[in-house]
Amino acid sequence: MEHLTDFERDQLIEVVNIGAGNASTALSQMVEKKITIHVPDVFVDRVERVPQFFGETEKIMTVVLLKLLGDAPGIMLLMFPPESALKLAGLLTKQHKKNIKVLDELDRSALREVGNILSGASMTALSKFLDLNVLQSVPDAATDMLGSVVDTVLAEIGKESDIVLVFKVNFSIEGEDIDGQLFFLFDPKATAKILEATNKVVGRK
């Protein structure tokens, strides 16, 4: 497998970093806690070969999904272990629950909203920085085996492309033991657009 050139890789990571940085600021303001984000990781391969990149396949995860539309179509995923999802929902709805099995409609709605805000913040940053027009769908949430969720998402990408680029950003909320991951999935066409736009911006300076 051949990767992107190191330069392009760094460029893309920086772009995702800007988006994720903006998203974490938004989340930090929502929950009034400090958020730590890690340097993004990028991965390119045939769609059917990337599931292991997402983590342990039989683990249960709570996933919020948004479709990205416009100049750089793709999919954004926000993933939490269910305990973290419940804690975060508790922080947002100001209700604390002990039973991790039960995410009620209010919790799910709060988590979908988190997805909405994080995606919105990331995409706004990208739109401004790269001058791309990116829209997002309404968020949708599911709690199930990570592998099954990934299987579904990759099939969706696979409809249009044989190859997928995945960006992963780990983050955690300080003092609350809440860990989450943000994933951005793009096909080569969208990636080329992002690189092109980045080059334009870099060239301008």
Binding site: L4, R46, I163, P188
Partner: peptide, 19 residues
Amino acid sequence: KTDVVSEARANININVAEA
């Protein structure tokens, strides 16, 4: 149409066979 142009522009070249 495999999007050769975009794949080339993004410098993506996957050498493993399809599943």
